[in-house]
Write a protein that binds this DNA or RNA. Structure first.
Lengths: 104, 104
DNA sequence: TTTATATATAACCAAATGGTTATATGAAAT
DNA sequence: ATTTCATATAACCATTTGGTTATATATAAA
């Protein structure tokens, strides 16, 4: 369901994740820290919300965003185990190669 | 230069990375392990090559692909430190909150 | 009550993504 | 020499991405 790879594909979204992980931010806080338009930021927020990495809270005319920490943590762990495999495979392949040197 | 986030955005590309990390594969090995067309695989390979996460070697009519381990390792470490920050910030924010409880 | 501010949404655009089919090229095997 | 197999490339298509401007709506402040 949650596609963290899609969420983190854009550097603006990665920066938003870092911002809201430090503290809750309103949409205009976020808009102010980039040089793109408010609707463009809105679309990035929509993707992060869609992937459930952000939570929003409405207070009057303000909209506060914060990290959905449990989901982010879970998805990030999954990512690490998926990508970690790539390097582990490499090591396993090397190990196998070394162990079978004499047989060639 | 290398955009690992782009490279890993697609599940097919992630599986290719895992495959070639275990051992060198020809393009047709790779094509055989998916149910999409050869040109579609070719495009995924082109993206992985463009992002320098793969190396290719030509032997006769075969094209062998392998992981560009140093680049992958480096880029993956960078990714981890960038995304790791998100969770560290969260913890730092919590720590700060706890330390300043009495002052409110 | 008017005005200013925060957010939402629509319409548009260019480029990238992820796939297809058809076909060309080049090397190996019969 | 012909056929077969691996790879490359072209042309096409739909969808997504990442942006824009213009405008609407809703709340807060003057």
């Amino acid at each position: 369901m949650t596609d963290i790879y899609r969420a983190i594909a854009d550097p603006i979204r990665r920066k938003i994740l870092r911002m809201v992980s430090q503290q809750e931010c309103t949409q205009s806080d976020i808009v102010a820290s980039f040089s793109i338009s408010q609707p463009a930021i809105k679309k990035h927020l929509a993707i992060l919300l869609e992937e459930q990495l952000l939570l929003e809270r409405r207070v009057g005319k303000f909209c506060y965003y914060r990290l959905n920490t449990p989901v982010f943590q879970h998805e990030y762990l999954q990512l690490q185990s998926e990508l970690g495999l790539v390097l582990e495979n490499k090591l396993a392949g090397l190990k196998h190669y070394l162990e079978n040197l004499e047989e060639e």
